[in-house]
């Protein structure tokens, strides 16, 4: 079982146990923070928060991936080539915008709640994916393309069998950036009315309840690290042909 090697399965196990078992650690937090009346966040279950968080960040990342890769493919085709300069400029400029500010702006434009947060995350998450899709497809050598066409592939076959597989490691790196940013920003989205792992943190910060902050922060950090490690594995697998045998 190659999949069991490395930290990935253990991190996953740790995250599940920490999420489900968090309430059981109440005595521990009681001992750590004797001054607090309620040392355990109990407004929502941590499992529900984790699932809501995953839903928000996951849907946003999925939309960002689908739209981002499609856009990246479009502007690298002859038909979309003239849009490429603009798309690249927007992607580069947009990435300098702090994600928290983008999230905050979504409120005056679209209102409070989960869906404005979702749209803001998806839009922001789009940028690294578009950028990396373009870069990834660009790095396919010209003679590889010429060989693919010259040997009798259609343009679609060349895209599906040559360009996308060769660009995959770079595209996945973009998705990884996007997902990690989305997971972090989704936590802040609890300030615009979405229930996420950020909720105990924000509540704890505003109510000087360090225990709440710690509970949310631990789960959030674990989730981000787990996803990062998972993407690392995926990237290794996708780039397998590069490895010396």
């Amino acid at each position: 079982m190659r999949i069991l090697r490395g930290p990935l399965p253990w991190l996953l196990l740790l995250l599940v146990v920490a999420t489900v078992g968090m309430p059981a650690t109440k005595p521990l937090f009681h001992a750590m923070f004797p001054a607090l009346d309620r040392p355990m966040y109990e407004q929502d279950s941590f499992t529900a928060l984790m699932l809501a968080h995953l839903w928000l960040a996951g849907v946003a990342s999925l939309v960002a991936t689908i739209v981002g890769v499609a856009l990246g493919i479009f502007v690298t085709r002859p038909a979309g080539a003239e849009f490429r300069g603009m798309v690249e400029t927007v992607a580069a400029m947009g990435q300098t915008f702090p994600p928290v500010a983008v999230l905050a702006i979504a409120v005056p434009v679209m209102g409070f709640g989960e869906s404005p947060a979702l749209i803001a995350l998806a839009l922001y998450g789009l940028l690294p994916i578009v950028r990396n899709t373009i870069t990834g497809i660009e790095t396919v050598p010209a003679d590889t393309r010429e060989a693919a066409l010259g040997i009798g592939m259609s343009r679609f076959q060349m895209l599906a069998r040559i360009e996308l597989p060769l660009a995959a490691p770079i595209i996945v790196a973009g998705i990884r950036t996007s997902v990690i940013v989305n997971v972090g920003t989704a936590a802040i989205a609890s300030t615009v009315g979405a229930k996420t792992l950020g909720s105990p943190i924000i509540l704890g910060l505003s109510g000087s309840n360090t225990a709440y902050v710690l509970q949310g922060a631990i789960l959030l950090a674990l989730l981000a690290i787990l996803l990062d490690v998972a993407f690392e594995r995926l990237a290794m697998w996708l780039g397998g042909w590069r490895r010396p045998a």
Partner: peptide
Amino acid sequence: LNVVQTIPSIALFGLLIAPLS
């Protein structure tokens, strides 16, 4: 440094509160 960069900012702020206080 990679792990630190992976941890969401709000979580890192939160994790620093307890030890610092």
